[in-house]
């Protein structure tokens, strides 16, 4: 008699490798053959996993077209089996798979589109936190600003795109043809966050704002952030510009605390 462990290994071999050993363990009953009974499980396994990639990577699917997307899904299911109890993590390694597997690796924009879609998903269920509003700007005494530290919302993620991947994603989302793939030496930095209405939002960041944000995320005080902006802005522009950024961040629901 096969052990419980034997049966479970044979079952997984059926699902993953189409190894038909399990069929010999099944009682012959009714109109279905043992092959058909095993096939119900194998087909269900692949449909279920495919459904996850379809749902998580809708724009990548449109970018690739049906045939290449089918090839991607089949290859990924065979090569990157799920190791997490939740299906939401099944396609976590898809960007890496795309960047290492031909023919997809010949088009690096594909891994970037997939990576952007994963960031959107990470943002969707990141931790919550209460956020501050504009009124906080009036409440901070002038002498407290130099030592002020901001804490940012845990849902904020950043994504460095060297290709016009996010622009392509946007085009497909708007049901228009994506632009031809193009590469930039300097990446575009995208901020992705969950807004006050729990909807995922994103925007590109300009140089000075990105410099300021990185320091704020590292809990650097306001005075240090101002200093870091000196190479990017005229002296007299720094304070109003930074004030404008902070105002935008408050509107976006990015700031959860401001402490001296």
């Amino acid at each position: 008699m096969p052990s419980l462990k034997d049966i479970q290994q044979e079952f997984m071999a059926l699902l993953q490798e189409n190894d038909r050993h399990l069929e010999k363990r099944i009682i012959k009953q009714g109109e279905l053959t043992n092959e058909q009974r095993a096939e119900i499980y194998r087909t269900g396994y692949r449909i279920r996993l495919r459904g996850v990639i379809d749902s998580d990577h809708e724009m990548l699917s449109l970018y690739l077209g049906d045939d290449l997307f089918d090839q991607l899904v089949e290859g990924y299911i065979d090569n990157a089996p799920s190791e997490h109890p939740s299906l939401r993590f099944f396609a976590e390694r898809l960007p890496e798979y795309l960047s290492k597997t031909e023919p997809f690796s010949n088009h690096p924009i594909l891994a970037e589109i997939a990576g952007f879609e994963r960031r959107l998903l990470h943002t969707f269920d990141s931790a919550d936190s209460d956020t501050l509003d504009q009124s906080v700007l009036q409440q901070i005494p002038a002498d407290a600003w130099p030592t002020l530290h901001f804490t940012m919302h845990p849902s904020i993620h950043f994504y460095a795109a060297y290709w016009n991947s996010v622009e392509s994603w946007q085009s497909l989302k708007n049901e228009t043809a994506p632009p031809e793939a193009s590469h930039n030496e300097q990446p575009t930095i995208w901020a992705i966050w969950r807004g006050p209405k729990k909807v995922t939002e994103y925007k590109s960041l300009q140089g000075a704002e990105w410099v300021a944000l990185q320091l704020v995320m590292q809990s650097k005080p306001f005075s240090e952030v101002c200093e870091a902006l000196q190479p990017h802005l005229e002296e007299e522009q720094i304070a109003p510009m930074l004030f404008g950024y902070i105002s935008d961040w408050l509107n976006n629901g990015w700031i959860t605390s401001a402490r001296g």
Binding site: Y45, R48, P81
Partner: peptide
């Protein structure tokens, strides 16, 4: 059972009805 060797089938796979199980 849903997992074998750390791999998750994401299916509710049937157990043998034995004393061992």
């Amino acid at each position: 059972f849903t997992t074998v060797g750390g791999i998750n089938s994401h299916d509710l796979l049937p157990l043998p009805y034995t004393q061992e199980t």
